[in-house]
Design a protein around this nucleic acid. Structure first.
Lengths: 254, 254
DNA sequence: ATAATTTCTTGACCTATATCATTGTCCCGA
DNA sequence: TCGGGACAATGATATAGGTCAAGAAATTAT
């Protein structure tokens, strides 16, 4: 509980907030994620227009705000917190297809139904657009479309990496890959050689992301600890003494 | 040997054709895949321009034409045959991330290197564009961009399905899903209740796609045959007496 | 045709990971 | 401060699918 706690004061507000709890949108130009996500592609004039189409939403931890198969009315841009995306089988088996953080875009649907569900891992801020409005905006500002295409290409690359992980990596490699991925999410290109991460998600979420069981994830963390590849601090705080070593294991260079 | 054999006469042409064997582009307006893929988004005038940027390439079976990590100079549009896309680990473990057929687009790279390799499963026709030229064309014709975004969204949905498969389905379900997917590729929305498919890929390819071994794939085909869920004809020809039953198994409704 | 080669199938056995069960730990609320 | 419920760790055991091995079938080359 250290990193994201800046807004903790605000958290003490009652939790009754239900899905679709929303406040009228503030100002996109002053938005904290200006420079990330869809918005980074936009000039001031375009942002002005975007403002009017967007609604800021706060979702408390552990709330599903996109239900698999429901009507795809909206697009979202994550402006705070971490979201998990998932698909499920009828008997409850679940695959988390990604954890997405600040700046990421969410809701590209091919039909008029969402092909996946989305749930907040921790308290999350979203910027919501109606699909129809966004489509209108795209007509007007092709730069939005370009930005969306770039985002989609990125996600596609990530998805391919994840397929390699799920199809061909061992549990040891999967967990190492996962931790390395979290470092990339946190630091971008410039990952320090020694680093720390705070994992907001549970072991069960990690298991559902890596195609493993909770027990295997737990055992694998223990193994990595025994091997001094990670230090598990209090709570969810993970210390990584050698990022390069971790990365090597995650990419199959044992 | 029944379904795709229409073009079998043409196949007897010599096989010596090497990679990058190309003919000057013909006419996109008369192209057999006009109406599919990127091209379907284009008006005649746009197609005319596209023609000049495109080069038709024929690749014989089993040739790698995109090497993982190589410089991403080109985009491709598949105009004939089936291509496999894959990622590998240093020790040779491989994950096929998709089989793509006629009309599909290929080469969306996020950096200037391809994040995946591509190899022809059977003899393949490609329409090749230089990335820089395509970028210029996108500036001029936003409809191309729109079409690309739609394609990317589609692939993303497919990728998520595949993650669910790789992370959470049994071998039985995986093979059933795979066969159903082939039906979707062949028939689109309108799959007949009883159908046939011809699989151009080997068991090893199927295994690398499903995150299994060749032996497990083979055993699972045998099991499906025993269960009368498929009929394996001569060669690669698969008969599916109940598409709905197969689909149910593939989606986890045993 | 026939040999050589690749692909496919099947069997015997093994191992990585799943499953089941227990205990410990950490929150949060009263 | 205590108690309940989620979360996590770990041990014992089971199993789906992997590995190794051999032969059959299909494909390609001579």
């Amino acid at each position: 509980m250290s990193t994201v706690s800046l807004s903790d004061q605000a958290v003490h507000r009652p939790r009754r907030l239900v899905l679709a709890g929303m406040e009228g949108c503030t100002n996109c130009a002053a938005c904290e994620v200006r420079g990330h996500g869809v918005c980074s592609a936009l000039a001031d004039k375009e942002l002005e227009r975007l403002s009017r189409a967007a609604v800021k939403v706060t979702v408390p931890a552990g709330h599903m705000f996109i239900e698999e198969g429901s009507d795809a009315h909206d697009f979202f841009n994550v402006t705070g917190g971490t979201v998990k995306l998932f698909k499920s089988l009828p008997d409850g088996r679940r695959q988390i297809t990604g954890f997405v953080g600040v700046g990421h875009f969410l809701g590209l649907a091919v039909s008029d139904h969402y092909a996946f569900g989305a749930e907040s891992v921790e308290q999350v801020q979203l910027c919501r657009f109606s699909r129809t409005k966004l489509e209108t905006l795209m007509e007007e500002f092709p730069s939005i479309e370009r930005r969306l295409l770039a985002e989609a290409a990125n996600e596609l690359v990530a998805a391919q990496d994840q397929m390699l992980l799920l199809g061909r990596k061992t549990a040891h490699e999967r967990v190492a890959s996962f931790l390395y991925g979290r470092l990339v999410e946190k630091y971008g290109e410039h990952i320090p050689p020694v680093a720390d991460i705070l994992l907001p998600m549970t072991r069960a979420d990690i298991a559902d992301f890596l195609g493993l069981t909770v027990e295997t994830v737990s055992r694998t963390f223990s193994r990595l600890r025994r091997e001094h590849l990670i230090g598990v601090g209090a709570g969810q705080d993970i210390h990584i003494p050698s990022v390069s070593r971790l990365e090597a294991i995650g990419s199959g260079d044992g």
